[in-house]
Amino acid sequence: MRLFHRLPLGFASLLAAAALPAAAQSSVQISGYLDAGVFRDFDKTSKLGTIQRSNLALSGTEDLGGGLQATFRLSTRFDLDTGAPEDAGRKPFWHDESTVGLRGGWGHLRAGRALSAMWAQDWKFDPWANFNRVASPAWHLWHYLTPTDRASNNGTAEYGRMANGVFYDSPTLAGFTLHLSASPERTAAPGRDGRARSVSLNYDQGPVAAMLAHERNGSGDRNLFLAGKYSFGALALMAAYDRSRSGDTPDKARAATLGATYALGATTLKAGYGRQRLNDDTHHFASLGADYALSKRTTVYASLGHQRYEHQPSRTAFGVGMAHAF
């Protein structure tokens, strides 16, 4: 504004008019997901809190011309029942994502912190989108020995997000997309250190969806993930196989999960089952749920999960909640 004060009025007006089209080609959005519920957890305690996760995000694009866009996304996760950041003091404020990037006909390239290629795509093959602590078989059984980074949360493990990363999502070709993520920095952690990398090849066309992914974190832990989904109108069936191995111990885990959703008007019924082989122990997980859409953005839901783990007593959790997306 001080520059405009120094210029002749007519010339300043001309500059302002010239700037308007550029401003019109940029956009910033505020979005989020709010979730809270009352549930009895597997530890037999009653709680009010997040059955799913809550987040607040700022994202935007700028048209650079020639089909090229600049992008950014900043997203933080928090506990709706207390208003506190998720795991305050341990996880970074922009825990969910903090990236800047470029997008064009060749794909989308970002840098910063975000879900790794495998974790960003696996949710499609679980009835609860790997997003429900009561009922999701994926939440409890997948990627068991393979944190994305063993030490990025002030010395504790991070499951899902890669810090100091570069992320690439390809355009769709004949139903196929390729997703890559890697860090140029070595990750220091107990046992081993190295550079993390993740790749996911996805197919999604018509009633069929499939995914093949492999991830190696900076500590040498490895994960192989294979999944498929088929939709018959209102019914969708899904299956997944996950194998994770520790980089510095003989530990290994294999998990197979099955899931189904059935849309009945505003109600979506869900069912899931998973079996995990953790070294010599066998664990089972079964669940049921129902979502009722009050609108396109607001849903109420009920969730039930049952664990039968070897050397442990059977445990059941159940809860009801409400979620609003904006």
Rank of each mutant, 00 (worst) to 15 (best):
T299L: 05
R186M: 05
L34V: 09
T71S: 06
R245N: 12
F72I: 10
G247N: 09
S46T: 14
A196H: 08
P21Y: 01
N130G: 11
D126Q: 04
T268L: 02
Y309L: 10
G155H: 03
L269C: 00
T268E: 12
D149A: 14
A120T: 08
D169L: 11
P250C: 02
H284E: 04
P313Q: 05
A323V: 03
D204R: 14
F42P: 06
A253V: 12
G194S: 02
F42V: 08
T61M: 04
P184D: 05
I51Y: 06
G155M: 03
A23C: 03
A263H: 01
S152C: 08
G265W: 06
G66Q: 05
Q52M: 11
L237P: 01
A129R: 15
F167V: 04
F131V: 04
A271Y: 08
I30R: 06
L269E: 08
N55L: 14
Y292V: 01
K296E: 11
A293Y: 08
G66R: 06
M322A: 15
G233K: 00
A256E: 10
T99F: 00
Q69V: 03
T316V: 09
T45G: 14
P21E: 07
H5E: 15
L201K: 07
R254C: 10
R308W: 02
Q69R: 15
A12P: 06
W119T: 11
W139P: 07
T267K: 06
G155A: 06
H311W: 00
P92K: 01
R308F: 00
G272K: 08
S314F: 00
A19W: 06
F318M: 12
Y301K: 01
Y168F: 13
L278A: 03
R150E: 12
L58S: 09
G66D: 09
W119K: 11
A36G: 07
T71N: 06
P313I: 02
A120C: 08
G112F: 02
T61V: 13
F125S: 07
Q121V: 03
D126N: 06
L34I: 08
L80F: 11
A260E: 04
